[in-house]
Design a protein around this nucleic acid. Sequence first.
DNA 1: CTTTGATGTGAAAGCGTTTTCACTCTTGCG
DNA 2: CGCAAGAGTGAAAACGCTTTCACATCAAAG
Lengths: 333, 333
Amino acid sequence: MEKQTVTIYDVAREAAVSMATVSRVVNGNPNVKPATRKKVLEVIDRLDYRPNAVARGLASKKTTTIGVIIPDVTNAYFSSLARGIDDIAMMYKYNIILTNSDENGGKEVQVLNTLMAKQVDGIIFMGNQVTDELREEFRRSKAPVVLAGSVDAEKTQPSVNIDYVAAVAEAVKNLIDHGNQKIAFVSGSMKQAINHDYRLKGYKKALKDAGIAYDDKLVFETDYTYKAGQSLEPALSAAGATAAFVGDDELAAGVMNGLTDAGVDVPGEFEVITSNDTKLTELVRPKMSSITQPLYDIGAVAMRLLTKLMNNESVDENTVILPYGLMKRSSTK
Amino acid sequence: MEKQTVTIYDVAREAAVSMATVSRVVNGNPNVKPATRKKVLEVIDRLDYRPNAVARGLASKKTTTIGVIIPDVTNAYFSSLARGIDDIAMMYKYNIILTNSDENGGKEVQVLNTLMAKQVDGIIFMGNQVTDELREEFRRSKAPVVLAGSVDAEKTQPSVNIDYVAAVAEAVKNLIDHGNQKIAFVSGSMKQAINHDYRLKGYKKALKDAGIAYDDKLVFETDYTYKAGQSLEPALSAAGATAAFVGDDELAAGVMNGLTDAGVDVPGEFEVITSNDTKLTELVRPKMSSITQPLYDIGAVAMRLLTKLMNNESVDENTVILPYGLMKRSSTK
DNA sequence: CTTTGATGTGAAAGCGTTTTCACTCTTGCG
DNA sequence: CGCAAGAGTGAAAACGCTTTCACATCAAAG
């Protein structure tokens, strides 16, 4: 039953060299005579020796593992980022410990602590509600932490994002240009920096530029779920809105379908523009116009940035802003 | 710059006890006098001591980490399973190393090896193409491996699934009952056991039970992507099909939208039933009828099963079959 | 030849825990 | 009062590697 594990010591003995030499060939250290290398490799192959990464981690203080904190893998926006992260991580020989946080502060802190206990070499954090406690943990961490697709108003951590303010402003301006005066702002919790400090700011800016008064009756704070969006219709109509900017695609799909099901024509009577350009935008009918973001790239770049930080390479810019766009589909005129 | 790490030794010194005792209180070993425990806990708190999980892993040969191999996190079916896995894992104090395999045999083997090198305590594998090489790796692994939402015709590994044959048969029967004679079978690669050995079998069974001849012109093997589905319309019509069973929701959404865009009325002229009951089924219009599966639970149960295996607990049934259902929405009559 | 600077190798000290084993105290009980 | 049985604790040996340091060897240069 017990599977015998062969260690570096066994290899050394069989090959009649020291552990140090075995370690050298395993790690590709050039200071080994070709003949010796060959001999060792043969033994490694014969014994089917596989280095124990845990022991290696203890000795070298590097685990080639990074922690990824994600609100919910099930959300298309975040899973797209996660894919970018994993691909680049794999490219650089890192593995990812992935944990769902539900954007719950307590859970985030706890998870962060277990990640640090596991000696991850770096951390990628997704989530828009960076509490003071969390920030304190980031600071305490000896592993670099980068935010991906997430913002913290304090801007204390390296991060990769798009310019949310400008993107939202542009999206809302688009709606205004189509003649809409009463534009709803639909998002998740206002406790999240991305909503409160960025999107809303973009929204207000667009209104102001167009000389439209801001009316908080048109601001809808809800959950990032399809159902939440779907049940928003009565309120939206009651408020007299004729268009909406929505902060999440799933939520937007809900809003749109809720409208449609209530007999409101989209985009004829009501325009909808969403934020994340996930696959969903193409699946629903009408297809949803959206701010476009290089989702995969945000994850990929964040991971790439993290590798640099982990290697203490100099980084010219700690917060990188990727380009966004606006994709007109069929939920807007 | 260097963050000083405090070790168990520091705590022992400060508390004037041995490392063994500190270890005992950290691990909740009852054989410690309350007074001693209190003293140690105070020091731990004062020094902000945090046990190094890597060292712990080396000494105890347990990492409280499990490996999860997933075809693509971005796919709603798999990410739902992943969520179930992670939640239960967290409940049992495990973390997850998540890696995307793209169902690519070579990558799977490689990933499996790095997971084993990292000494994971267990592995959950998702993917339906278990090659001989892969099977061999599973066997070689000292960590238990369970398949989640995936089947291997050889049935050599513990797994958690639904009864695909029966589910598909029922779905197809439903289509037949609506008067369809030419029912397309649309799935991913036939190299995958789930398609070739399970779904197709269910499909054939339903046809046979209804006395309909099997026609391989109605079998469409394609990718699990929206685009692939969308571009299937001409072929589907050309084959004279009036209904389709589809093996993946995203693919099904593509099929359905492709049909609709080509002016075919769903479900009036063409019925579609899909397989995974992910969120997508509710987002599209018409909403898609689907086989229902307890997605989250498949992941959760797989993880629970794995914990038992890791603890060498006796397990009454190595392959657990969860109940499925059929949800009629609007893509079928 | 000797010197010098690479080049190749091994011994052994960590890395931060867990765990075994032995030992010392206490208790409870006959 | 004597003794067996816990209860509580510490010393030290793992765990499987990396890395430092010292040493030996060897080829090229003087």
